[in-house]
């Protein structure tokens, strides 16, 4: 992905520059019911740096594949809707530079 001056890139393009070994089992799960019923701000959609949380109809769509394992969603979710752990077996993002 070439970073041209002034051209903004999409988050998926940025994530694509990383090395991944994505597990077939998710390491994070989200209780969508809580998102739909309890949460109006849905702060995770703006603060998850990997864009794993997206708005859908009245709720949330979560995909763990691009997760950078930062832990933000676990901490900012006001409704404890996020069940969070690190991936197993060294899977997930593989930083080369860090």
């Amino acid at each position: 992905m070439s970073v041209q001056a002034l051209k903004k890139i999409k988050i998926t393009e940025a994530l694509n520059t990383n090395i991944w070994d994505v597990d077939s089992r998710p390491h994070i799960t989200v209780d969508y019911e809580k998102c739909r019923k309890l949460c109006d701000k849905k702060i995770c959609t703006l603060l998850c740096p990997a864009g794993c949380y997206t708005l859908s109809d009245d709720g949330i769509l979560f995909s763990y594949e691009g997760c950078l394992e930062c832990g933000t969603c676990r901490i900012v979710c006001p409704h404890e809707a996020v069940k969070w752990d690190y991936p197993l077996s060294g899977r997930g993002v593989q930083y080369r530079f860090g």
Binding site: M1, S2, I19, W20, D21, Q94, R96, F97
Partner: peptide, 23 residues
């Protein structure tokens, strides 16, 4: 090689392979 990476050098058009681990 972990081919899940698609990092292309814009000047040469080649895949950047530096530090790409195998699996």
């Amino acid at each position: 090689p972990n081919t899940q990476i698609v990092n292309i050098d814009p000047t040469t058009g080649t895949l950047i392979r530096e530090g790409i681990p195998s699996i």
